[in-house]
C-alpha cells in the first residue's frame, strides 16, 4: 500500500490497516506524535480505529524545540 506521509510517498506492508499499526511499524507508537489523516486531526484515542487506504495523506508531527 502506498501512503503519502509528510509529503513523501511511502510504501508500507498491506498488513498495516490502522494508524496505530502504522505508528508501530515505524516504532513511534510510544512517542508523543500527532497524526492528521486526510486533513483530519486525530485524537490519540482514535488511532486504533482510524483505518488506512491506498494513497491516504498522513501527517505525523511532534513537538520540537522552539520559543
Amino acid at each position: 500500500m502506498e501512503l503519502i506521509i509528510n509529503g513523501d510517498r511511502v510504501e508500507v506492508p498491506a498488513t498495516i490497516t490502522t494508524v496505530s499499526s502504522l505508528l508501530q511499524h515505524f516504532g513511534i507508537d510510544q512517542k508523543v506524535v500527532i497524526v492528521e489523516l486526510n486533513q483530519e486531526i486525530l485524537e490519540k484515542a482514535s488511532h486504533h480505529e482510524a483505518t488506512l487506504s491506498d494513497r491516504d495523506k498522513i501527517e505525523i508531527v511532534n513537538f520540537v524545540g522552539g520559543g
Binding site: 512517542k31 500527532i34 508531527v61 513537538f63 520540537v64
Partner: peptide, 9 residues
C-alpha cells in the same frame, strides 16, 4: 514552549 513540526519517521 515548543514548536510543532513534521516528524522524521
Amino acid at each position: 514552549t515548543f514548536s510543532v513540526r513534521r516528524m522524521n519517521i
